[in-house]
Nucleic acid binder design. Structure first.
Length: 419
DNA sequence: TCTGGGGTCCTAGGACCC
DNA sequence: TCTGGGGTCCTAGGACCC
């Protein structure tokens, strides 16, 4: 059996832990630049505020119902996530961390009749030790565990725990489960299935393998098998190194000049390079993209990307920043208000797969030790304590984040005082 | 006026090889 | 006049996830 632990309204819950008076109130957390709604408390959902909705469209609801809003505070969420995950790692022999607020647990060593008590204990322990409420779903496959946790969240009488064991229990759940809510069935597939009259997960499980394989491809077939109760998605304990690293942001105000755009891209490159070194990798390719607002009329939109390849892969910040500038020179056009930009690292290899060049000397010793020192300082004193001048100095001006809470768990100055 | 920031995997098609 | 039958690798784009 596989368990899935999913934090309820995770970002909102992190805020509520440090503001207990928000319990039971409508609360939302916003995306970068305070643009969209990305997390909602139960009370906010009840008001009809949708996931991913732009804030300006629900301004009236926020005002009318006094909805508490927060800018996102990723340092806080990452730290709270780590606390929850630490508990999970001690609770099961194998744990697969799937996202910031979810993890799968291998429960094959727990007697079936004890699963319920295990779940109750675990849920309570997490609540007590971290303040984060979670839901638990347990089933024979990952996809069914997803179904279970979905049920556990929707049906309040279940108190946040749902276990699906037998074939008849599976069928019973799937009959009332929308196929569009199945993990792995997105908007396109759901629309396609609807065309053939398939609305529930149960109807989907009755379709022939060949038909599913042909129309929904290999992943559709895996999902079908998983819903039928046989495991086809591997457990994967430790997460593999990233095959692609992206750092990108939208800007508060459109950027028109090349210099500030270059500064933004340089800081993306620096952060991407740090991520790369953190996992001990090197990249063969760096690409950038720049674009105007997506919401302009189509003939006014501008969106370009450019990629540069290295002969020998690198994780040297200065090389990556200068490559970024080279790319920008190729695609920058005057007279455009750039609203979003990003840096993309591809062709990522480990230290051992790194091919040395025949003609060019490898990254100089000096650079490598310089970077090491910079990383050490920043790890100890906080990121960007030391940085490249190319990144500019007034990063704050580029982004909006007006309602950010304190760093309750990662900054001494922000520690809560209890009186 | 205001619209997130990451990722993964799969497939089709082009360029190229013998 | 008639013009094969295998492959590989790379890229762009789609679909999906949180």
């Amino acid at each position: 059996m596989i368990g899935l632990v999913d934090c309820n309204s995770f970002f909102v819950s992190c805020q509520v832990v440090f503001n207990p008076k928000l319990k039971g109130k409508p609360v939302v957390v916003l995306s970068g630049n305070d643009g969209c709604i990305v997390s909602r408390s139960r009370e906010a959902k009840a008001l009809g505020i949708k996931m991913g909705e732009p804030v300006f469209k629900v301004k009236h609801l926020i005002r009318k119902h006094k909805v508490y809003t927060f800018s996102s505070n990723f340092s806080l969420y990452a730290d709270m996530s780590q606390r929850v995950m630490t508990i999970l790692l001690s609770a099961a022999p194998r744990v697969s961390i799937y996202s910031i607020d979810e993890a799968f647990l291998d429960l094959s060593n727990i007697p079936r009749e004890d699963l319920k008590y295990f779940a109750i204990d675990l849920k309570e322990k997490i609540r007590k030790w971290t303040g984060i409420p979670v839901s638990v779903g347990i089933a024979p496959t990952k996809t069914l565990a997803k179904v279970a946790v979905h049920k556990a969240k929707v049906d309040l009488s279940l108190k946040g725990i749902k276990i699906i064991k037998t074939k008849s229990e599976i069928d019973k759940e799937l009959i009332s489960f929308k196929v569009s809510d199945v993990w792995g069935i997105g908007r396109e597939s759901a629309r396609f299935l609807k065309f053939y009259g398939i609305d529930t997960a149960y109807q989907f499980t009755e379709m022939p393998d060949v038909w599913v394989r042909k129309n929904l491809k290999i992943f559709g077939l895996k999902t079908l098998k998983e819903l039928q109760g046989s495991s086809h998605i591997s457990f994967e304990e430790k997460h593999a190194p990233k095959k692609q690293i992206i750092r990108s942001r939208s800007f508060k105000n459109p950027i028109i000049e090349i210099e500030p755009l270059g500064e933004a891209l340089a800081s993306f490159a620096a952060r991407a390079a740090y991520k790369l070194r953190e996992q001990g990798s090197y990249a063969y390719k760096i690409g950038i993209f720049i674009r105007s607002s997506n919401y302009l009329q189509s003939h006014l939109r501008y969106s370009k990307s450019y990629e540069k390849k290295f002969i020998t892969p690198t994780n040297d910040t200065s090389l990556l920043i200068s490559a970024t500038f080279e790319c920008l020179e190729k695609i920058f056009q005057k007279g455009i208000g750039y609203k979003k930009a990003g840096v993309v690292l591809n062709g990522i290899v480990s230290q051992y797969e790194k091919q040395l060049g025949i003609f060019k000397k490898d990254q100089k010793e000096l650079c490598a030790s310089l970077i090491k020192v910079v990383d050490q300082i920043n790890n100890k004193m906080g990121s960007k304590t030391v940085r490249y001048a190319a990144e500019g100095i007034n990063e704050r001006l580029r982004y909006r984040s007006e309602k950010k809470s304190k760093l309750y768990t990662t900054n001494w100055e922000d520690l809560l005082r209890v009186s």
